[in-house]
Design a protein around this nucleic acid. Structure first.
Ligand SMILES: [Zn+2]
Ligand SMILES: [Zn+2]
Ligand SMILES: [Zn+2]
Ligand SMILES: [Zn+2]
Lengths: 136, 136
DNA sequence: TATAATAGCTCTAGTCACTATAGCTTCAAG
DNA sequence: CTTGAAGCTATAGTGACTAGAGCTATTATA
Protein backbone atom coordinates (compact mmCIF):
# COMPACT_ATOMS: atom_id res chain seq x y z
CA UNK A 1 0.00 0.00 0.00
CA UNK A 2 1.25 3.43 -1.00
CA UNK A 3 0.69 6.76 0.70
CA UNK A 4 -0.35 9.65 -1.52
CA UNK A 5 3.18 11.04 -1.32
CA UNK A 6 4.71 7.81 -2.53
CA UNK A 7 2.11 7.48 -5.27
CA UNK A 8 3.02 11.00 -6.27
CA UNK A 9 6.73 10.28 -6.41
CA UNK A 10 6.26 7.05 -8.33
CA UNK A 11 3.83 8.48 -10.85
CA UNK A 12 5.20 11.98 -11.23
CA UNK A 13 1.75 13.45 -10.50
CA UNK A 14 1.71 16.04 -7.73
CA UNK A 15 -0.16 15.34 -4.52
CA UNK A 16 -2.79 18.10 -4.90
CA UNK A 17 -3.35 16.98 -8.47
CA UNK A 18 -4.10 13.43 -7.33
CA UNK A 19 -6.64 14.75 -4.86
CA UNK A 20 -8.08 16.91 -7.62
CA UNK A 21 -8.41 13.89 -9.92
CA UNK A 22 -10.26 12.09 -7.18
CA UNK A 23 -12.59 15.02 -6.66
CA UNK A 24 -13.58 15.22 -10.31
CA UNK A 25 -14.07 11.46 -10.49
CA UNK A 26 -11.17 10.65 -12.78
CA UNK A 27 -9.85 8.21 -10.22
CA UNK A 28 -11.93 6.35 -7.66
CA UNK A 29 -12.05 7.55 -4.04
CA UNK A 30 -9.04 5.98 -2.38
CA UNK A 31 -9.13 3.51 0.48
CA UNK A 32 -8.29 5.11 3.79
CA UNK A 33 -5.98 4.26 6.67
CA UNK A 34 -7.32 4.19 10.21
CA UNK A 35 -6.27 7.83 10.52
CA UNK A 36 -8.20 8.73 7.32
CA UNK A 37 -5.18 9.00 5.05
CA UNK A 38 -5.39 7.76 1.45
CA UNK A 39 -3.83 4.39 0.63
CA UNK A 40 -3.22 3.11 -2.90
CA UNK A 41 -2.28 -0.13 -4.60
CA UNK A 42 -0.63 -1.18 -7.83
CA UNK A 43 -3.74 -0.77 -9.97
CA UNK A 44 -4.23 2.81 -8.83
CA UNK A 45 -0.63 3.52 -9.78
CA UNK A 46 -1.11 2.05 -13.24
CA UNK A 47 -4.22 4.13 -13.83
CA UNK A 48 -2.46 7.27 -12.67
CA UNK A 49 0.52 6.61 -14.91
CA UNK A 50 -1.83 6.21 -17.86
CA UNK A 51 -3.43 9.54 -17.00
CA UNK A 52 -0.08 11.24 -16.59
CA UNK A 53 1.17 9.97 -19.90
CA UNK A 54 -1.98 11.02 -21.75
CA UNK A 55 -1.79 14.48 -20.12
CA UNK A 56 1.86 14.78 -21.15
CA UNK A 57 0.69 14.04 -24.67
CA UNK A 58 -1.80 16.87 -24.38
CA UNK A 59 -5.10 14.99 -24.11
CA UNK A 60 -7.95 16.68 -22.28
CA UNK A 61 -9.16 15.17 -19.04
CA UNK A 62 -12.55 14.24 -20.45
CA UNK A 63 -10.92 12.47 -23.38
CA UNK A 64 -8.73 10.66 -20.87
CA UNK A 65 -11.83 9.70 -18.95
CA UNK A 66 -13.33 8.23 -22.13
CA UNK A 67 -10.11 6.40 -22.95
CA UNK A 68 -10.00 4.87 -19.47
CA UNK A 69 -13.60 3.72 -19.78
CA UNK A 70 -12.83 2.11 -23.13
CA UNK A 71 -9.71 0.53 -21.70
CA UNK A 72 -11.75 -1.25 -19.00
CA UNK A 73 -13.76 -3.29 -21.48
CA UNK A 74 -11.09 -5.14 -23.43
CA UNK A 75 -13.59 -6.75 -25.78
CA UNK A 76 -14.80 -3.37 -27.06
CA UNK A 77 -13.92 -2.28 -30.58
CA UNK A 78 -11.17 0.31 -30.33
CA UNK A 79 -12.48 2.72 -32.94
CA UNK A 80 -13.50 5.10 -30.15
CA UNK A 81 -9.94 5.34 -28.91
CA UNK A 82 -8.58 5.74 -32.41
CA UNK A 83 -11.05 8.52 -33.05
CA UNK A 84 -10.03 10.43 -29.92
CA UNK A 85 -6.41 10.19 -30.96
CA UNK A 86 -7.10 11.30 -34.52
CA UNK A 87 -9.06 14.29 -33.32
CA UNK A 88 -6.30 15.23 -30.92
CA UNK A 89 -3.65 14.84 -33.60
CA UNK A 90 -5.45 17.16 -35.97
CA UNK A 91 -5.90 19.63 -33.14
CA UNK A 92 -2.16 19.55 -32.49
CA UNK A 93 -1.48 20.08 -36.20
CA UNK A 94 -3.80 23.07 -36.29
CA UNK A 95 -2.05 24.58 -33.33
CA UNK A 96 1.33 24.05 -34.96
CA UNK A 97 0.39 25.81 -38.16
CA UNK A 98 -1.22 28.65 -36.29
CA UNK A 99 1.93 29.07 -34.19
CA UNK A 100 4.14 28.91 -37.26
CA UNK A 101 2.26 31.78 -38.86
CA UNK A 102 2.65 33.64 -35.59
CA UNK A 103 6.35 32.91 -35.57
CA UNK A 104 6.80 34.31 -39.07
CA UNK A 105 4.90 37.44 -38.11
CA UNK A 106 6.85 38.00 -34.90
CA UNK A 107 10.13 37.30 -36.62
CA UNK A 108 9.33 39.97 -39.21
CA UNK A 109 8.48 42.44 -36.45
CA UNK A 110 11.58 41.76 -34.46
CA UNK A 111 14.08 43.65 -36.59
CA UNK A 112 13.79 47.02 -35.00
CA UNK A 113 16.25 49.66 -36.17
CA UNK A 114 14.77 52.43 -34.08
CA UNK A 115 16.05 53.95 -30.87
CA UNK A 116 12.98 55.39 -29.28
CA UNK A 117 9.37 54.31 -29.09
CA UNK A 118 8.30 56.81 -31.75
CA UNK A 119 10.30 54.95 -34.38
CA UNK A 120 10.01 51.43 -33.00
CA UNK A 121 8.95 48.89 -35.59
CA UNK A 122 7.59 46.59 -32.90
CA UNK A 123 5.12 49.17 -31.62
CA UNK A 124 4.32 50.25 -35.15
CA UNK A 125 3.63 46.69 -36.31
CA UNK A 126 1.43 45.97 -33.34
CA UNK A 127 -0.59 49.10 -33.99
CA UNK A 128 -1.21 48.28 -37.63
CA UNK A 129 -2.21 44.86 -38.86
CA UNK A 130 -1.99 45.93 -42.50
CA UNK A 131 1.78 45.29 -42.37
CA UNK A 132 1.14 41.68 -41.48
CA UNK A 133 1.80 38.73 -43.75
CA UNK A 134 -1.14 36.64 -42.58
CA UNK A 135 -4.51 36.89 -41.00
CA UNK A 136 -4.61 35.76 -37.40
CA UNK B 1 -19.04 58.98 -29.82
CA UNK B 2 -19.39 55.22 -30.07
CA UNK B 3 -21.58 52.92 -28.04
CA UNK B 4 -19.95 49.80 -26.69
CA UNK B 5 -21.69 47.75 -29.37
CA UNK B 6 -20.31 49.91 -32.16
CA UNK B 7 -16.86 49.89 -30.58
CA UNK B 8 -17.15 46.14 -30.49
CA UNK B 9 -18.11 45.84 -34.14
CA UNK B 10 -15.42 48.23 -35.27
CA UNK B 11 -12.64 46.67 -33.22
CA UNK B 12 -13.65 43.02 -33.38
CA UNK B 13 -13.49 42.77 -29.58
CA UNK B 14 -16.65 41.38 -28.00
CA UNK B 15 -18.73 43.56 -25.72
CA UNK B 16 -18.19 41.55 -22.51
CA UNK B 17 -14.48 41.48 -23.28
CA UNK B 18 -14.36 45.27 -23.50
CA UNK B 19 -16.06 45.52 -20.11
CA UNK B 20 -13.60 42.94 -18.79
CA UNK B 21 -10.65 44.99 -20.06
CA UNK B 22 -12.05 48.01 -18.29
CA UNK B 23 -12.47 46.06 -15.08
CA UNK B 24 -8.87 44.88 -15.02
CA UNK B 25 -7.59 48.34 -15.87
CA UNK B 26 -6.29 47.60 -19.36
CA UNK B 27 -8.45 50.40 -20.72
CA UNK B 28 -9.59 53.47 -18.79
CA UNK B 29 -13.14 53.62 -17.38
CA UNK B 30 -15.27 54.91 -20.22
CA UNK B 31 -17.21 58.15 -20.26
CA UNK B 32 -20.91 57.63 -19.68
CA UNK B 33 -24.07 58.83 -21.35
CA UNK B 34 -26.83 60.41 -19.28
CA UNK B 35 -28.35 56.96 -18.94
CA UNK B 36 -25.04 55.50 -17.70
CA UNK B 37 -24.07 53.77 -20.92
CA UNK B 38 -20.45 53.73 -22.04
CA UNK B 39 -19.37 56.15 -24.76
CA UNK B 40 -16.07 55.95 -26.62
CA UNK B 41 -14.05 58.09 -29.00
CA UNK B 42 -11.42 57.52 -31.66
CA UNK B 43 -8.51 57.18 -29.23
CA UNK B 44 -10.28 54.45 -27.31
CA UNK B 45 -10.84 52.60 -30.57
CA UNK B 46 -7.16 52.86 -31.49
CA UNK B 47 -6.10 51.51 -28.12
CA UNK B 48 -8.53 48.63 -28.38
CA UNK B 49 -7.37 47.74 -31.88
CA UNK B 50 -3.80 47.66 -30.60
CA UNK B 51 -4.85 45.33 -27.81
CA UNK B 52 -6.81 43.11 -30.18
CA UNK B 53 -3.90 42.81 -32.57
CA UNK B 54 -1.44 41.98 -29.83
CA UNK B 55 -3.84 39.37 -28.44
CA UNK B 56 -4.23 37.86 -31.91
CA UNK B 57 -0.45 37.61 -31.95
CA UNK B 58 -0.56 35.73 -28.66
CA UNK B 59 0.78 38.33 -26.24
CA UNK B 60 -0.33 38.11 -22.62
CA UNK B 61 -2.48 40.90 -21.24
CA UNK B 62 0.18 42.08 -18.82
CA UNK B 63 2.74 42.29 -21.63
CA UNK B 64 0.18 44.26 -23.61
CA UNK B 65 -0.26 46.54 -20.63
CA UNK B 66 3.49 47.15 -20.55
CA UNK B 67 3.60 47.76 -24.30
CA UNK B 68 0.80 50.31 -24.03
CA UNK B 69 2.60 52.11 -21.23
CA UNK B 70 5.77 52.24 -23.31
CA UNK B 71 3.82 53.43 -26.33
CA UNK B 72 2.50 56.45 -24.40
CA UNK B 73 5.93 57.93 -23.91
CA UNK B 74 7.23 58.29 -27.44
CA UNK B 75 10.64 59.56 -26.31
CA UNK B 76 11.39 56.37 -24.39
CA UNK B 77 13.99 53.96 -25.72
CA UNK B 78 12.16 51.02 -27.25
CA UNK B 79 14.38 48.26 -25.89
CA UNK B 80 11.60 47.32 -23.47
CA UNK B 81 9.19 46.64 -26.31
CA UNK B 82 11.78 44.75 -28.28
CA UNK B 83 12.52 42.62 -25.24
CA UNK B 84 8.87 41.71 -24.75
CA UNK B 85 8.62 40.67 -28.38
CA UNK B 86 11.82 38.64 -28.26
CA UNK B 87 10.66 36.82 -25.18
CA UNK B 88 7.31 36.11 -26.76
CA UNK B 89 8.91 34.89 -29.96
CA UNK B 90 11.10 32.43 -28.13
CA UNK B 91 8.08 31.26 -26.17
CA UNK B 92 6.22 30.63 -29.43
CA UNK B 93 9.21 28.71 -30.78
CA UNK B 94 9.36 26.55 -27.69
CA UNK B 95 5.70 25.75 -28.02
CA UNK B 96 6.14 24.85 -31.66
CA UNK B 97 8.93 22.40 -31.01
CA UNK B 98 7.06 20.86 -28.12
CA UNK B 99 4.00 20.41 -30.30
CA UNK B 100 6.07 18.96 -33.12
CA UNK B 101 7.47 16.29 -30.83
CA UNK B 102 3.91 15.62 -29.73
CA UNK B 103 2.79 15.38 -33.33
CA UNK B 104 5.46 12.80 -34.14
CA UNK B 105 4.47 10.77 -31.10
CA UNK B 106 0.78 10.87 -31.88
CA UNK B 107 1.39 10.08 -35.53
CA UNK B 108 3.37 7.00 -34.50
CA UNK B 109 0.56 5.89 -32.21
CA UNK B 110 -2.15 6.41 -34.77
CA UNK B 111 -1.54 3.37 -36.93
CA UNK B 112 -3.70 0.91 -35.10
CA UNK B 113 -4.14 -2.49 -36.72
CA UNK B 114 -6.19 -3.94 -33.91
CA UNK B 115 -9.91 -4.56 -33.76
CA UNK B 116 -10.68 -4.54 -30.07
CA UNK B 117 -9.35 -2.59 -27.14
CA UNK B 118 -7.17 -5.52 -26.00
CA UNK B 119 -5.01 -5.20 -29.10
CA UNK B 120 -5.30 -1.47 -29.68
CA UNK B 121 -1.99 0.23 -30.23
CA UNK B 122 -3.39 3.56 -29.10
CA UNK B 123 -4.34 2.28 -25.68
CA UNK B 124 -1.12 0.31 -25.46
CA UNK B 125 1.04 3.30 -26.34
CA UNK B 126 -0.74 5.50 -23.85
CA UNK B 127 -0.21 2.96 -21.11
CA UNK B 128 3.50 2.63 -21.73
CA UNK B 129 5.81 5.56 -22.31
CA UNK B 130 8.76 3.31 -23.07
CA UNK B 131 7.51 2.98 -26.65
CA UNK B 132 7.81 6.71 -27.08
CA UNK B 133 10.37 8.46 -29.25
CA UNK B 134 10.82 11.47 -27.02
CA UNK B 135 10.47 12.65 -23.48
CA UNK B 136 7.51 14.91 -22.92
C1' DT C 1 -46.42 60.08 -28.50
C1' DA C 2 -46.70 55.18 -27.39
C1' DT C 3 -44.76 50.96 -27.77
C1' DA C 4 -41.73 47.34 -28.73
C1' DA C 5 -37.32 45.62 -30.07
C1' DT C 6 -32.65 46.03 -29.37
C1' DA C 7 -28.86 47.20 -26.73
C1' DG C 8 -26.88 48.28 -22.51
C1' DC C 9 -26.18 47.90 -17.34
C1' DT C 10 -24.29 45.20 -12.93
C1' DC C 11 -23.21 41.17 -10.59
C1' DT C 12 -22.30 36.45 -10.10
C1' DA C 13 -20.67 32.15 -11.50
C1' DG C 14 -18.56 28.97 -14.79
C1' DT C 15 -14.66 27.43 -17.90
C1' DC C 16 -9.85 24.21 -17.61
C1' DA C 17 -6.44 22.00 -15.11
C1' DC C 18 -4.49 22.80 -11.74
C1' DT C 19 -1.90 25.58 -7.59
C1' DA C 20 -1.61 27.91 -3.13
C1' DT C 21 -2.91 28.82 1.40
C1' DA C 22 -4.67 28.15 6.18
C1' DG C 23 -5.50 25.53 9.98
C1' DC C 24 -5.83 21.26 11.49
C1' DT C 25 -4.43 15.93 12.33
C1' DT C 26 -1.63 11.68 11.65
C1' DC C 27 2.44 9.27 10.99
C1' DA C 28 7.28 7.72 11.43
C1' DA C 29 12.01 8.27 13.03
C1' DG C 30 15.01 8.93 16.75
C1' DC D 1 7.85 10.74 23.84
C1' DT D 2 8.86 14.26 21.07
C1' DT D 3 9.39 16.48 16.88
C1' DG D 4 9.05 17.34 12.09
C1' DA D 5 7.33 15.75 7.89
C1' DA D 6 3.40 14.41 5.58
C1' DG D 7 -1.53 14.23 5.23
C1' DC D 8 -6.32 16.07 5.79
C1' DT D 9 -10.32 19.52 4.29
C1' DA D 10 -11.98 23.61 2.44
C1' DT D 11 -11.54 27.76 0.06
C1' DA D 12 -9.70 30.92 -3.22
C1' DG D 13 -6.72 32.18 -7.10
C1' DT D 14 -4.80 31.62 -11.96
C1' DG D 15 -5.80 33.66 -17.38
C1' DA D 16 -8.76 35.40 -20.45
C1' DC D 17 -12.64 35.34 -21.08
C1' DT D 18 -18.00 33.61 -21.47
C1' DA D 19 -22.84 32.92 -19.96
C1' DG D 20 -26.76 34.06 -17.47
C1' DA D 21 -30.18 36.65 -14.61
C1' DG D 22 -32.67 40.58 -13.87
C1' DC D 23 -32.83 45.10 -14.66
C1' DT D 24 -32.70 49.94 -17.52
C1' DA D 25 -31.73 52.95 -21.69
C1' DT D 26 -32.04 53.98 -26.35
C1' DT D 27 -34.02 53.98 -30.83
C1' DA D 28 -37.14 52.89 -34.66
C1' DT D 29 -41.49 52.42 -36.13
C1' DA D 30 -46.77 52.88 -35.81
ZN1 LIG E 1 12.10 49.09 -31.27
ZN1 LIG F 1 -1.55 41.37 -37.90
ZN1 LIG G 1 -7.05 0.72 -31.94
ZN1 LIG H 1 5.52 8.89 -23.84
Amino acid sequence: MLSIGNLSKTSGVKVPTIRYYEKIGLIAPADRSQGNQRRYEADDLKRLIFIKHARDLGFHLDDIKSLLTLKEDTSCPCSGADEILTRHLSDVRNRISRLQRLEAELERMSHCEGECVAECSVIESLADHSHCLYEH
